[in-house]
Design a protein around this nucleic acid. Structure first.
Length: 254
DNA sequence: ATGGTCGCTGTGCGA
C-alpha cells in the first residue's frame, strides 16, 4: 500500500505532470490540494483511464481537494462535519480498510491577520473532527498541505522565519494538538537526513539552493504507523518545467 | 529570499 499527497497548484495546468507521476509511481491513493477546479470540470475520465476513481470538492480559482484511488472509495466526507466553510479544503474517504483524510489547511497569510485567525479556528475544528475519526477508524492517515512547518529542522533558515506565518507558535501548537490525538508524523518515524522540505518558493534560486519548508505531511494512526515502511518527499517533479511549488509526499506500508 | 513567481482573473489577489 502506497499513500501520496501533492499540492498541485492548479490541476488544470499540472494534469500532464500528475498523470505521468501516477503512471510512474502507481500509488494506491493520491490526495490532491489546490486543484482550483469546479467539480463540473474535474477530469474524472482521464483518471479512470489510468485505473483511478476519484472524489473531489473544488471551486474556481482557489482551494479544491481530491482523492484518487485504485480501489473504490466509500464513506466519502466533503468538508468538516458541523463546521460551515464555503472554502473547499477537505475530502475524506475509506479505501481498502484505510481511512484517508485529505486537508488543504488555510495558509494564514500573516500572523495576526483575519486569515491567520481563520486558519487557527479551522484547525481547531479539524482537531475535534479527527478525534472522532480516530475513534471510528483505527487505520487512519491524515495527509495534505498542512501549511505548518512543525519544527525548526523543517525550515531552511529558522532564524529568518522565526515567528512568521507557517512556523509561528500557535500554528505549531495546533500541529502538535493533532499529534496529541495519537497521530504520528510519518516522515519522522525513521531517521532522516537534514534539509527535507516539500515546498520551495517560485523563483530561480529557491529550489536549486533548497530554500524550502516542510509543510506537506502524512500523519498516521498508531496502527498504520506500525505498518509504515518508509516516508519520503519526491523532489523530482519540483524540477519539471512549469512545476507546482510543492513536491509530493509518499508513504509506503507493509 | 516570501515574491525577484506563479495561477487565475481582470487591470489585483492569494499563495
Amino acid at each position: 500500500m502506497k499513500i501520496a499527497s501533492w499540492n498541485v497548484n492548479s490541476l488544470n495546468v499540472r494534469l500532464p505532470q500528475v498523470l505521468a507521476w501516477l503512471q510512474e509511481h502507481r500509488p494506491d491513493v493520491l490526495a490532491l490540494q489546490e486543484t482550483k477546479l469546479e467539480d463540473a470540470r474535474f477530469p474524472v475520465a482521464v483518471f479512470e483511464e489510468l485505473g483511478y476513481c476519484a472524489v473531489y470538492s473544488g471551486q474556481k480559482t482557489y482551494n479544491g481537494v481530491a482523492l484518487l484511488s485504485r480501489t473504490p472509495l466509500t464513506e466519502v466526507q466533503i468538508g468538516i462535519p458541523q463546521y460551515t466553510d464555503e472554502q473547499r479544503r477537505v475530502v475524506a474517504a475509506t479505501l481498502a480498510g484505510v481511512r484517508v483524510v485529505c486537508l488543504y489547511v488555510p495558509n494564514g497569510q500573516a500572523v495576526g491577520s483575519a486569515k491567520y485567525h481563520y486558519k487557527l479556528e479551522w484547525l481547531s475544528h479539524v482537531r475535534t473532527w479527527l478525534e472522532e475519526e480516530l475513534a471510528r477508524h483505527t487505520r487512519l492517515a491524515v495527509v495534505g498541505d498542512l501549511n505548518i512547518a512543525p519544527e525548526d529542522r523543517d525550515v531552511h533558515d529558522p532564524r529568518r522565519w522565526e515567528g512568521q506565518v507557517l512556523v509561528s507558535g500557535p500554528e505549531r501548537a495546533a500541529f502538535q494538538s493533532l499529534l496529541d490525538l495519537g497521530l504520528q508524523d510519518a516522515l519522522r518515524l525513521s531517521p532522516q537526513s537534514e534539509g527535507i522540505f516539500s515546498w520551495w518558493n517560485y523563483g530561480a534560486l529557491a529550489f536549486r539552493r533548497n530554500w524550502g519548508l516542510r509543510i506537506d505531511h502524512v500523519l498516521l494512526s498508531g496502527e498504520l504507523a506500525r505498518e509504515c515502511r518508509a516516508c519520503w518527499v519526491d523532489r523530482q517533479p519540483r524540477g519539471n518545467e512549469r512545476p507546482s511549488d510543492h513536491a509530493p509526499v509518499v508513504a509506503e506500508f507493509a
